[in-house]
C-alpha cells in the first residue's frame, strides 16, 4: 500500500535516527503510523504534528535553527505546494538546511484525483536557490540519497514514487548524468522512474540515453561533454513531472551553440481522470509508445 520506495524511506530513516543523534523526523499524520517504532525509540526526535502542513515546514526550519537535522515528510502536494512560502521563508531565507521527502509524485495516487497529484513540485522548488533535488528511479537510489542527505547540512528534496525502474541506474554515478546508451542523432535525458520506458522507446533509435536521479543541480557539464563533438545537438528531455521543468537548464548548458530541445513530461492541463498511474503515463504521452512516437517525429523533423 505504502509503495516500495516509501517503505524503504521508513526503514532507512528509522535506522538513521538510531545512528545520528541530531536527526529529527517530522510528519503531518501521513505515514506517521509507519514510524511508530522510531517514535517509541526517539520520542523527542520523531514528531507527528497532526494535519498541519504549514507547521510541518516551519518546524523543520525551527529544528534546524536549534542545531538539528530535520526530515519533513508528506505527500508532495502537501509538502511543497501548500506550504511553499514556508519553504521559501522558513528554510531558504533563514539560511538553514532541511530534508524534504515527498511521496505520491505526479500521479501515484491517480485514483485519488487532482488534489493528491503534484506534477509541479520540482518546478516550484527549482525557483529557489540551493536545493538539491533528487528524483530516484529505484528504492536503492532513494536509500543512498537519504543516507547522504542525513549526514549533510544543505537543502535536499527527495521525491519518492511508486514508479520504479528495473535497475538502480543512478547508483554509484554521483549526482551527474550516467550514460545508459550511446548514439549519434540525439541525446535523450531520462529523469528518475521514466528510464525504463525511455530505454524501451528508444531501442531501435540511434540516440544517446542519459540517466539522472538528481536533477538539481543540473549536470550542465555532463551534458556538454556528451554533445561536445556535435555541431547542432538535439536534446530530448523526459521528466516524470511537469513538462519543460528543466528546459531552461538544457538551454543554458548549450547557450553557446545552436541546438534543439524536445521537452516531454506531465502536461499542465488537468486530465480530470482517475484510474491508474499507467493510464496517466499513457495519457501524458509518457508510455513507451507515446515516447517513441514523439522522439522519432522530433528526430525526423
Amino acid at each position: 500500500m505504502a509503495g516500495i520506495m516509501r517503505e524503504r524511506f521508513v526503514g532507512v530513516t528509522t535506522e538513521l535516527l538510531d545512528v545520528h543523534e541530531n536527526l529529527a523526523l517530522v510528519t503531518a499524520d501521513l505515514t506517521a503510523g509507519l514510524f511508530r517504532s522510531a517514535r517509541e525509540s526517539h520520542p523527542d526526535r520523531v514528531v507527528n504534528l497532526g494535519i498541519r502542513e504549514q507547521l510541518l515546514v516551519s518546524v523543520a526550519g525551527g529544528l534546524s535553527l536549534a542545531g538539528m537535522r530535520p526530515i519533513a515528510h508528506s505527500f508532495a502536494p502537501f509538502l511543497v505546494e501548500r506550504p511553499f512560502e514556508q519553504i521559501k521563508i522558513d528554510l531558504n531565507h533563514q539560511d538553514v538546511g532541511a530534508i524534504l521527502v515527498s511521496a505520491g509524485a505526479s500521479y501515484d495516487m491517480a485514483s485519488s484525483g487532482r488534489s493528491h497529484q503534484s506534477p509541479g513540485d520540482v518546478a516550484l522548488l527549482a525557483t529557489l536557490p540551493d536545493w538539491t533535488i533528487h528524483v530516484p528511479g529505484h528504492p536503492d537510489e532513494a536509500e543512498a540519497q537519504l543516507r547522504e542527505a542525513a549526514t549533510g547540512d544543505g537543502l535536499v528534496y527527495v521525491r519518492l514514487s511508486n514508479q520504479s525502474n528495473s535497475e538502480p541506474y543512478g547508483l554509484d554515478s554521483g549526482q551527474g548524468f550516467r550514460v545508459l546508451r550511446r548514439g549519434t542523432q540525439a541525446t535523450v535525458i531520462a529523469v528518475g522512474p521514466v528510464a525504463d520506458a525511455v530505454l524501451q522507446a528508444t531501442e531501435q533509435l540511434d540516440v544517446t540515453v542519459l540517466y539522472a536521479a538528481t536533477i538539481r543541480p543540473f549536470d550542465a557539464g555532463g551534458l556538454r561533454a556528451v554533445v561536445r563533438d556535435q555541431a547542432a545537438p538535439s536534446v530530448v528531455l523526459v521528466e516524470p513531472y511537469l513538462s519543460g521543468t528543466s528546459t531552461a537548464e538544457v538551454a543554458d548548458a548549450l547557450v553557446d551553440r545552436p541546438h534543439r530541445i524536445l521537452s516531454l513530461g506531465v502536461g499542465k492541463e488537468e486530465l480530470r481522470n482517475y484510474g491508474s498511474p499507467r493510464q496517466h503515463a499513457i495519457a501524458h504521452g509518457l508510455g513507451p509508445a507515446g515516447l517513441r512516437l514523439r522522439i522519432s517525429s522530433f528526430l525526423s523533423s
Binding site: 523543520a60 525551527g62 536549534a66 521563508i89 533563514q94
Partner: peptide, 24 residues
C-alpha cells in the same frame, strides 16, 4: 535570530526550535 517580514512565521518556527532544544 530569525528573518521576518512575512507574517505568521515566527511562532511556527519557534515551535520547531523549542522541539529542537528539548531534543538536544
Amino acid at each position: 535570530e530569525i528573518s521576518s517580514g512575512s507574517l505568521g512565521h515566527g511562532l511556527p518556527l519557534a515551535v520547531g526550535t523549542a522541539l529542537g532544544l528539548r531534543a538536544r
